[in-house]
């Protein structure tokens, strides 16, 4: 297996607060890493730093050997890094199809001429993209795949999460960042959603995933390896069992429970 992604001594500072302190993290192709740690430990900040939403104060973020630190979010996306958000950032007034297809930027004809004057070709590409979106949605849920032109705000929480994941997946990313996908879901929904994640992994054997999660059984079920953060620092790393046994982790995160 080859190393797809590595963060090397990444730091992020907000004013006087050191949100990420020289964090290093590697992922091999096709593996899933669980990123855990208490609130405010810098997990989402790490995602934001990788996707170009916040500036790094040092360190390198390498995708396939290329440093993407400081790139515009758009360029990070073009390098095959895609993500979901903890608080869903879907467009509620648009349809399911619109929300998902937006992720295929590089494959869409975005010229003014093509969109305004070659309507026949445009409609053909709508059909083609619609088939893709449907196919992707149906790996998650058949009923959802039949609702491509429903407004997004009519969908349930779990379906919205699925849409977010589909939007992140539609361009076949190499690295997928999932930011607390189970937030706001019932235990049953969480369970169902994790099965979806494992299915995604089966369909995209070469894709790597980093997942932020508070539900320990979720991490146990899906992650190959865990990284624990506290106050922006990596405090433990290893298999789930090894990490849970770590006294540092016991103290910093899991407490006495």
């Amino acid at each position: 297996m080859s190393k797809l992604f590595s963060a090397d001594n990444v730091s992020v500072r907000f004013g006087g607060l050191q949100a990420l302190d020289k964090l290093s993290l590697d992922i091999d192709e096709g593996t899933i890493i669980g990123l855990i740690g208490p609130n405010g430990s810098g997990k989402t900040t790490f995602f934001n730093a990788v996707t170009g939403l916040c500036r790094t104060a040092g360190g390198q973020i390498l995708v396939d050997g290329e440093d993407i630190a400081g790139l515009h979010p758009r360029h990070v996306y073009q390098r095959g890094v895609s993500r979901t958000f903890q608080r869903s950032r879907l467009c509620l007034s648009l349809s399911v199809f619109d929300n998902v297809v937006i992720g295929r930027q590089n494959a869409l004809d975005l010229t003014l001429f093509g969109n305004l004057f070659r309507r026949g070709r445009f409609i053909e590409s709508v059909r083609e993209n619609h088939d893709r979106v449907r196919a992707l949605l149906s790996t998650f849920s058949e009923p959802l795949a039949a609702r491509t032109f429903d407004p997004l705000h009519t969908l349930s929480m779990i379906d919205r999460r699925r849409i977010e994941v589909c939007r992140a997946l539609i361009a076949n990313p190499r690295l997928l960042l999932l930011d607390e996908p189970s937030a706001g879901m019932t235990p049953d929904e969480t369970h169902e959603f994790m099965s979806d994640i494992l299915k995604v992994r089966g369909d995209h054997p070469r894709m790597s995933i980093i997942i932020i999660e508070h539900e320990m059984d979720v991490i146990q079920r899906v992650a190959d390896r865990c990284v624990v953060l506290n106050f922006g620092k990596k405090v433990a790393e290893g298999t789930f069992d090894a990490v849970v046994a770590d006294p540092w982790v016991q103290e910093a995160y899991l407490g006495s429970s």
Partner: peptide
């Protein structure tokens, strides 16, 4: 609707 979200998706 969401300039930041849109930028993240290219």
């Amino acid at each position: 609707e969401d300039p930041v979200g849109a930028a993240v998706f290219g």
